[in-house]
């Protein structure tokens, strides 16, 4: 119970810090000092305190987008084990609800973008739905492989103690799955090499260009939601990579948080060392991720 409350509290507070870590790592690799770790939080609070300007083209759909999007991601947080021994709400098939809630968040963001009637935002929305639709099978192939390997039907068991045994017997498959899910995490969270969150050219953006017209508290909701989503995917990767069984829940929680930091650092390193892919190559990357986890599944099914 204590740890359930603790993981939810951490879920609400820590995600913007991950963005801070990514920024710091990127800057350090480039030889700069970088912004303070708390900068994302400060940005959020500043945005929340501002007023908002709305396009005359927009309707209630545009105003509802950020609210429903963040609520969906928050609800998804209930389903993911975030350091405690179990997710806050766990049941067979919860991964499907998690994926659909993230899909809902994406759907309302896309629809809100289309509400502005801007060709740039339409472009971003088209890219977003294209890439996320292609990322979906990669994620589920990974989950199916995990189910085959651990015998679990909910996220708590798919990413739980069974993994410790599975890493011993099916290490190579799990490695492929982890790699594939990491790629999915990069794509879903609009990071390099799929999307460059720091770019200033609208033509090359994906996620950022969709939210061009949001301002003030709406933008704060969107950016906070993006940080939470990164934390959720981080949890997926960390729990999968950690794999070890720690008897003491406090130690497990600490290991989880350390893992999240490492995840953020890894993303920072990827961003610092890689260039953004050309947009036509992104589907290839995602299909490649599907192929990797599909391959893992084939290896698992053979034995």
């Amino acid at each position: 119970m204590l740890f359930t409350a603790l993981q939810l509290a951490a879920f609400l507070v820590l995600p913007p810090l991950l963005l801070g870590v990514i920024g710091r790592v990127k800057s350090r690799v480039a030889g700069r000092e970088g912004p303070p770790l708390l900068q994302p939080w400060r940005d959020l609070l500043r945005l929340a305190g501002k007023g908002a300007v709305y396009s005359r083209t927009t309707t209630w759909v545009f105003r509802a987008g950020p609210v429903v999007g963040l609520a969906a991601i928050l609800a998804a947080g209930l389903l993911m084990p975030l350091g405690a021994p179990s997710a806050t709400v766990a049941f067979a098939g919860d991964f499907a609800l998690l994926a659909s809630l993230l899909g809902l968040a994406r759907f309302v963001t896309v629809v809100a973008a289309l509400d502005t009637g801007s060709s740039f935002e339409g472009m971003g929305a088209a890219r977003e739905v294209t890439f996320s639709a292609l990322a979906e099978p990669a994620l589920f192939l990974g989950l199916v492989s995990l189910a085959r390997s651990t015998g679990g039907l909910d996220l708590t068991h798919l990413l739980g103690d069974g993994l410790a045994v599975a890493w011993r017997s099916d290490a190579s498959s799990l490695l492929l799955v982890a790699l594939s899910i990491f790629v999915v995490a990069l794509a879903e969270n609009a990071r390099i090499p799929v999307d460059d969150p720091a770019t200033h050219l609208e033509l090359t953006m994906i996620h950022e260009v969709m939210v061009l017209d949001h301002s003030g508290p709406d933008l704060a909701l969107i950016q906070y939601g993006a940080a939470l989503k990164l934390y959720l995917f981080g949890a997926l990767v960390v729990k999968l990579a950690l794999g070890a069984r720690l008897a003491d829940p406090a130690a497990a929680f600490a290991a989880f948080l350390a893992g999240q930091l490492a995840f953020a650092a890894a993303i920072g390193l990827v961003e610092a060392t890689m260039a953004r892919l050309r947009l036509v190559r992104v589907p290839q990357l995602l299909i490649g991720a599907s192929v990797l986890s599909g391959f893992a599944l084939v290896l698992l099914l053979r034995t």
């Binding site: 007023g51 908002a52 300007v53 709305y54 396009s55 005359r56 083209t57 927009t58 502005t116 009637g117 801007s118 740039f120 609208e202 061009l212 017209d213």
Partner: peptide, 10 residues
């Protein structure tokens, strides 16, 4: 009531 403007055309 919030201020209104045209859509940002980049």
């Amino acid at each position: 009531v919030q201020p209104a403007a045209p859509t940002w055309g980049c």
